[in-house]
Every structure is written in C-alpha cells, then in structure tokens.
Design a protein around this nucleic acid. Structure first.
Length: 302
DNA sequence: ATCCAGGAACTGT
DNA sequence: ACAGTTCATGGA
C-alpha cells in the first residue's frame, strides 16, 4: 500500500493502470445504492474501524485518491485501517498490465477492455456484506435486490448524520445473527433468503467464518468448496464472493446471467453462450477471469 | 398474462 | 451424479 498520512486527509497513490472516472461510472450504476453516496466527483462513505464510525469523503486530486475525514480526527491506527479499506475497495494491489496484454490477444476482450482502461475491480471488502449481497441477488431482478438491501440497511444498520443527511453502515453480523426469519420477511425477504442470511450471520458471529479462515483453506478450489458448504451459498455466490471480496483473480461466476447477456452480442449471437463456450473462455482468460467478468458487467451497463 | 431475474436447496430417480 | 421442482416477488 502506497499512501501518505496526515490527521485530516490521507492520500493513496494508485498504480499506473487507474482511472478514477471509470471507477465512478461503476459506483454510480445504481441510484438506489445506500452504502455510499456520490456528489459530483466525490464519494461519501462511512467506514467502521472497531467502534468508530468514520465518515470519509473520497476524491481524486493530483493523481492521488484523497480521503478526507469529516467527523473528527481518527487515530493514526484508524487512519491506516481506512487507507487499507479504500485500497482494497479499489483493488489497488492488482497490476493490470497482464490483463491488458492478454485482452489485446482476445477477440472478445479486445472489443471491451480498452474502452474502460483504468477501471478497477470495485470490491466489497466486508465479508458479511459480500455474502448477504450475493444471497439477495439470487434469482431476482437487480432493482428489487437493491430495494431489499436498502430496507435491510435502514432497518438494521447504523448511520451517522452529516449536514442533515444520513450515511449508512451495513448491519453487523452480530445483530443479524439474533434476528428471526419473520423479522426479515417483513422486509419482503423470502423465507429462504432470510434463513440463509441469519445462518451466515451466526457462522460469522461464532468466529468460524472469516476472510482469513477462508484464505487459509488453500487454493481456489478449496476456498470455493469451503464457501459452498454454507447453506445459501452455491457455486455462483462462492465465485461472486471470491471475486468481489477475497480477490481471487480466477474467480468466475460461470452461471451469471449478466456475464451471459454481455457475451451474447459480443459473440454475435441471439442466444446465450453455452456452458462449453463459457469454459473455453475461462481457459483463454486463465488468471484473469474475475477481471474479464467485471469488465463485461461494465460493458453491459453501457 | 407470461416469462425472466447477477440461484440454491430439496426431492426423487 | 443428474434432472425436475419449489421458493418468491418485481419488472418488462
């Protein structure tokens, strides 16, 4: 992590392949988003460090990501945690040169990837949030999934007020673990999704399910198996979480409808790609499946 | 009205 | 192992 520290503002120096505007396009893709707000070219987001809720204003000035603290003066340790969070959120550890090289040789990616040069994998650093979002997104349209997320966050998350506006934090797994299915049904969660989410929260509350524990499982296949063993997490959700939260470059949600829909026109087809075609693409994209998928989602948004 | 959503578990063979 | 069924509700 390449950053400079100061009491009220920290600066992150991103790698060469970084385009803030492209990242903003992705961040602004849904106006129902509640876990951050865009105002002009600035991003407002609350980040939790221990018991502290730190409201940050993130912008891009002089080739640096600048994070300004709006509610008080976090300790040096807290500032470092915030820097690490933002660094991870924008996936600034990945060197995209290899991906861009590979894309120039690929008949599909070469039509897509250069258009969004500098777009990073905008992640979900919080594991509970990533798992819940994967479950909420299963088999329902995206606008409705955002509606459910919004209700969930407003009902069970914390917020801090700044200039008359509420800034929300994702609910804690401690709190969600003790909810009942009925309480989530009130938000129009299906009974199944409610069970899955409460169950996942319980596994996180007892400490067994953490990012570190998952990484310790070993390679891609082992981590994926470990995730799938939790009720409510199938192959698609496991890959989604490994892509957006655990930073596996070869995570590949092969059953993803968005991925399929993006590939349709790029392959010149009316039909969706077959499983065989998707597996062949995965081999061509080996080591960069997650970024390929992410850029195809971005393509879909155009 | 009908089909599909950024699927997954459950059931029966 | 594999195929069919059920869950649930909003959008097009």
């Amino acid at each position: 992590m390449n950053w400079t520290d100061a009491p009220t503002t920290i600066k992150l120096n991103p790698p060469k392949e970084f385009n803030y505007e492209e990242c903003l396009v992705f961040l602004g893709r849904d106006d129902q988003e509640i876990l951050y707000q865009l105002k002009g070219d600035d991003i407002y987001k609350v980040i939790r460090v221990g018991d502290e809720l730190i409201l940050c204003k993130i912008g891009f000035i002089k080739e640096s990501l600048q994070v300004e603290f709006l509610n008080g003066f976090p300790s040096p340790k807290a500032r470092e945690k915030v820097a690490a969070y933002v660094w991870e959120w924008f996936d600034l550890d990945t060197n995209l040169a290899g991906f861009y090289d590979m894309a120039t040789q690929d008949s599909i990616l070469k039509e897509v990837v250069p258009k969004y040069a500098g777009l990073r994998m905008i992640g979900i650093p919080d594991l509970f949030e990533a798992l819940v979002w994967a479950i909420l997104g299963q088999q329902i349209n995206l606008p409705f999934a955002y509606t459910l997320k919004k209700r969930f966050v407003v009902q069970y998350g914390e917020s801090i007020s700044y200039n008359g506006e509420a800034h929300w934090l994702f609910p804690s797994f401690e709190k969600v673990a003790s909810l009942t299915v009925e309480k989530l049904r009130e938000l129009q969660f299906s009974a199944r999704k409610a069970e899955y989410i409460i169950g996942i929260a319980g596994h996180m509350k007892n400490g067994e399910l953490t990012k570190e524990a998952l990484w310790k499982q070993g390679d891609y296949r082992q981590v994926k198996q470990a995730l799938i063993h939790y009720r409510g997490i199938g192959a698609w959700s496991a890959d989604y979480v490994m892509m957006k939260c655990l930073h596996f470059p070869n995570a590949y949600p092969i059953a993803d409808v968005g991925l399929h829909n993006a590939l349709k026109p790029l392959q010149g087809n009316e039909r969706r790609p077959t499983l065989e075609e998707l597996e062949a693409l995965s081999e061509k994209w080996e080591g960069w499946q997650a970024y390929a998928t992410f850029y195809l989602w971005r393509f879909l948004y155009d």
